[in-house]
Every structure is written in structure tokens, then in C-alpha cells.
């Protein structure tokens, strides 16, 4: 399916926002300005955006510890997210959650998650709710190559099949779970999608660094799931450009690996090359977006720095609705 010019510009802008959001965090974390554990999504932008461009706010997603990209792609507010990561009481989660727990149920984003593998069962529940509502909505769980080894993921896949839940298991294979290679930890070797297949669902596979491949794959897959065929799964082959967490020395990487993936597997570079050579967008179109996004991120950081801090009185707020 051909995307319109507007759709392409929007997709590029979304990917670029994620990229610059993360590149900026990388800098501000290194200086110690931001506390906590942060896992950057840089490199995987085409997956989050290629998936979420098909969704509206009534479709739900459940994310992971590496959740900023999913949140931004699903429509979480850039300023609200930046403030959250800086720990402000004006953050999306009032400074209670931080990087690993960003959520905004109003836009269908049911939470990043600090527990690997916790998301898949939650997505099954959200999918069952969508099935009850009968409006053709879906729930999507993002899982890594590491999370696919968790029993919760297996249970969720089987339960989704058994209950015919409109649940989509998106596996982002970035080849590493923390410091361990997926070839070691995933027993099926080189392949996650076949596991989902073995549970009885239809699966897709695509290059996760190619926005157009992700987008087209998801178009097909969503058509299938929205039509009431039950769950489906997709494996995207992708790359993470930074360490597992900020501060990771990355001794597990091969020599020149980071340079090579930044050079040949960068979804933004690939997007630009393909739209410019096909003459559907110009370098100037994209350069304009680049500049606007940089300004937007700078403004978000300025706002986050100046935003009010929480106080000790806030600790006990929101443990319960009523107590």
C-alpha cells in the first residue's frame, strides 16, 4: 500500500522524535542530571512507529523496560515524558514511575514495565476486553528476544490462541538480552516467530530497520486480527544502538559492530535513502523536520529542568483510589 506524503512525513517525524529524545537522554544521563535505570530505544524506531501508525487511541499497547519509543509512537506527550524521566511532579506519572514505568492509559498506552515478560499477559487481558467491546480493536504486546523466554510469554500466547483474543505479539529481536546473545538464549536458534507459530497462531517476519517493511507487514497482520481471526505474532529483526542500560560497557559487542549497525542498519537513514531516491520526499523536507524535532526536544528538556519537583507529601498519593 502506498503511503501518502503526509503519512510519510508524520512517520519520519515520529521516528526522529524518538531518536532525538533518546540521543538527548544519553547525554543528560551521562552528566548525572537524570537518575535511575534507563534503557534507550535508539535503533528500533521503525518498529514502534511502523506498528503504532496503524493504531488509534482505543487500540492498546503494552510495553517493556525499553519503552520510550513505544510510548512516543503511541502518542504520549513528549514534554510529559521528559518531565517524568527527570522526576518532576508534572511528569506523565507525577514522578512516581520514571523511565521504566511510563504510561498513559488515555492514549491506549498501558505501561512500560520493569519486569521482563510481564506485558504479554496484560495485553491478552486488554485484547479480551476489546473482544467483549466488539469494535475491532486490538491489544499489542512488545517483547524482546529475552522476554520471549519467559513463561509468562508462553502462557499468554497459548491463552490468546485458546480465547481467540485479538492480541498481537510483536517480538523485537535486537539480538541481545542484557549481555547475552539471542543465539544462546533462544533455543529455537535464529527464530522467535516459529515459537508463536507452534502455539497455533499465524506469524509474520520482517526487517525491523525498514519502516516500510514494518508498516506493510503490520497492515496485513492487523487486517487479519481485526477481522476476528484471533491472535497473531510478528518478529522484527532490529538493532539497539546503545548499551542495555545507560552505563553498560558493552563488552559483548563485536569489533566495529556499533559503527557497522549505525552505518548500515539505521532505520532513519534507510527511510531517507528510500524516499529521496524514489523522489517522494526531498532531503529538504526531512531536514526541516530534523531541525524542528531538535528544537522540540531542547524545549522539552528546558521545561523538564524547570518543572516543579515532587515533595514528601506526594509519596502516599495514588496508592489507592480510596482507602
Amino acid at each position: 500500500m502506498q503511503l501518502s506524503r503526509e503519512q510519510m512525513l508524520q512517520a519520519y517525524r515520529r521516528m526522529k522524535i524518538i531518536r532525538e529524545f533518546e540521543e538527548r537522554l544519553h547525554i543528560d544521563i551521562a552528566t548525572g542530571a537524570i537518575a535511575g535505570f534507563t534503557h534507550l530505544y535508539c535503533g528500533q524506531e521503525a518498529v514502534a512507529v511502523g506498528v503504532c501508525e496503524h493504531l488509534d487511541t482505543d487500540d492498546k499497547i503494552v510495553s517493556t523496560h525499553r519503552g520510550h519509543g513505544h510510548c512516543l509512537a503511541k502518542g504520549c506527550d513528549v514534554d510529559g515524558m521528559m518531565k517524568e524521566i527527570w522526576g518532576s511532579r508534572e511528569g506523565l506519572c507525577k514522578g512516581k514511575g520514571g523511565s521504566m514505568h511510563i504510561a498513559d492509559v488515555d492514549v491506549g498506552m498501558l505501561g512500560a514495565n520493569g519486569i521482563v515478560g510481564a506485558g504479554a499477559p496484560i495485553a491478552v487481558g486488554a485484547a479480551l476486553a476489546a473482544k467483549l467491546d466488539g469494535k475491532g480493536k486490538v491489544a499489542i504486546t512488545f517483547s524482546g528476544d529475552g522476554a520471549c523466554n519467559q513463561g509468562t510469554t508462553f502462557e499468554a500466547m497459548n491463552m490468546a490462541v485458546v480465547t481467540k483474543a485479538p492480541c498481537i505479539f510483536v517480538f523485537e529481536n535486537n539480538h541481545y538480552s542484557e549481555h547475552t546473545g539471542f543465539e544462546y538464549a533462544v533455543g529455537t536458534q535464529q527464530d522467535i516467530a516459529s515459537r508463536a507459530e507452534a502455539f497455533g497462531m499465524r506469524v509474520w517476519r520482517a526487517d525491523g530497520t525498514d519502516f516500510f517493511a514494518v508498516h506493510e507487514t503490520m497492515r496485513e497482520l492487523l487486517e487479519y486480527v481485526r477481522a476476528g481471526n484471533g491472535p497473531a505474532a510478528v518478529e522484527f529483526d532490529t538493532e539497539r544502538f546503545f548499551g542495555h542500560f545507560e552505563g553498560d560497557p558493552q563488552r559483548y559487542r563485536g569489533e566495529g559492530e556499533l559503527d557497522r549497525i549505525r552505518e548500515t542498519r539505521d532505520c532513519l537513514k534507510k527511510f531517507r535513502a528510500s524516499v529521496v531516491s524514489a523522489k517522494v520526499l526531498t532531503d529538504a523536507d526531512l531536514d526541516t523536520i530534523d531541525a524542528e524535532v531538535l528544537d522540540q526536544i531542547e524545549a522539552a528538556v528546558v521545561a523538564a529542568r524547570a518543572a516543579p519537583r515532587p515533595t514528601s507529601e506526594d509519596v502516599l498519593a495514588d496508592v489507592y483510589v480510596a482507602y
Partner: peptide, 20 residues
């Protein structure tokens, strides 16, 4: 445990981390 060796199945090889 997870990553008690670290680096298994990677170019860096076993013991790339040796436990987090």
C-alpha cells in the same frame, strides 16, 4: 542465573560481564 556468565552467544564471548 541470568548473565551469571554474561556474553554467552555474543562476539565478546563468555565472561563479557561475569554477573551484573
Amino acid at each position: 542465573g541470568e548473565d551469571v556468565v554474561g556474553g554467552m552467544g555474543t562476539a565478546g564471548g563468555p565472561e563479557a560481564i561475569g554477573g551484573i
